[in-house]
């Protein structure tokens, strides 16, 4: 079988861009937020410094933890890397591994990564990690459901569950962009993205025990393992945000071909700036929600997605 070098180049560009650009967006978002709060704030490339610093440090493993604890950060990173080459996060064109999974498969892979992270956190034997797992699991009831239902909504509009066809369909049919199902699926997905990236009305980031959700899972990690874990969750944020941008919010503007793949990187940066501005606006204008209210928030997202999915079915 002859190797298609253009395809290999496109795959490599997409993979490397996702892996190496995702900390940049975190830095930009932190910087923008600190500017709005009239602070000086950390540098845009601070996340890279964090990763380099942590990679040079030694990892400490709890005495009664098994090998799962050590391998899971690498496994989760691998799963997120796999997702990054099967959905249109940079290039709106099928690449090497595209045929492996569709939207639903992507959602299940996200679920797999979340599950093994929870497993590793339980394995560490720390009480804080255990209650973090309890929180993540009880919120996951609604968040994973919303993720899958939103993809069903997309499938309903476009007649396919392939993300590339969906992107193409929305670009060529502007009227599909304004249907009720699509609009409310976008709102539900935005609410889900705010939860998954731990931003303000929800704020799950930080190590304060009252509100920590996602960070409780990496409570026992240190050094290299912590760096890999963090990097993986940044890739996850980038992937969810790019699906939000390329399939729901702004499906237009992506180029094809090898040169197009290179052009897509600055285009994606511009799109992300729009998303970051929206997020910073939400984050700086809303108060933090109490922890037990997050379930309500997510159930509203679930309701919106499921309800308008059924409406889409009825209205047609």
């Amino acid at each position: 079988m002859a190797v298609d070098f253009a395809l290999v180049a496109e795959t490599l560009i997409q993979f490397l861009a996702v892996v190496f650009l995702c900390p940049f967006f975190i830095g930009v978002s932190n910087k923008l937020k600190s500017i709005v709060e009239s602070r000086n704030g950390p540098s845009i490339i601070q996340p890279y410094y964090d990763i380099i610093k942590l990679l040079q440090k030694e990892s400490i493993v709890p005495g009664n933890a098994s090998n799962i604890f050590i391998y899971v950060p690498y496994l989760a990173f691998g799963v997120y890397s796999l997702i990054s080459i099967v959905i249109p996060v940079i290039l709106p064109q099928p690449i090497y591994f595209t045929a492996t999974v569709d939207f639903l498969g992507g959602a299940l892979l996200f679920g797999l990564a979340g599950f093994i992270k929870m497993l590793a956190a339980m394995d560490s034997g720390n009480n804080f990690s255990a209650f973090g797992v309890a929180r993540v699991a009880s919120f996951g009831v609604f968040s994973e459901g919303t993720l899958i239902v939103v993809f069903f909504a997309v499938a309903l509009i476009t007649g396919t569950i392939n993300p590339y066809v969906t992107n193409n369909f929305l670009v060529s049919n502007p009227s599909a962009y304004l249907t009720i199902t699509h609009v409310f699926a976008t709102i539900a997905f935005l609410m889900l993205f705010i939860f998954e990236s731990g931003r303000l009305p929800v704020e799950s980031s930080g190590l304060m025990e009252f509100g920590m959700v996602e960070d409780a899972l990496s409570y026992e990690y240190s050094g290299k393992l912590l760096a890999i874990n963090k990097w993986g969750s940044w890739i996850k944020q980038y992937l969810l945000g790019s699906v939000l941008l390329n399939v729901f919010l702004i499906p237009w503007g992506l180029q094809t071909g090898v040169l197009g793949a290179l052009e897509d990187i600055p285009i994606m940066i511009l799109k992300w700036l729009v998303l970051i501005v929206i997020l910073v606006f939400i984050e700086t204008s809303l108060a933090k929600m109490r922890l037990f209210k997050i379930q309500d928030y997510l159930s509203i997202a679930f309701l919106i997605s499921l309800f308008f999915l059924i409406f889409g079915l009825v209205i047609g």
């Binding site: 309500d296 159930s299 309800f307």
Partner: peptide
Amino acid sequence: TPSTLLTALIVAVVGI
């Protein structure tokens, strides 16, 4: 709230 919402959802969907 979640249980109220889910019940309302069931009511609405059955109604639909």
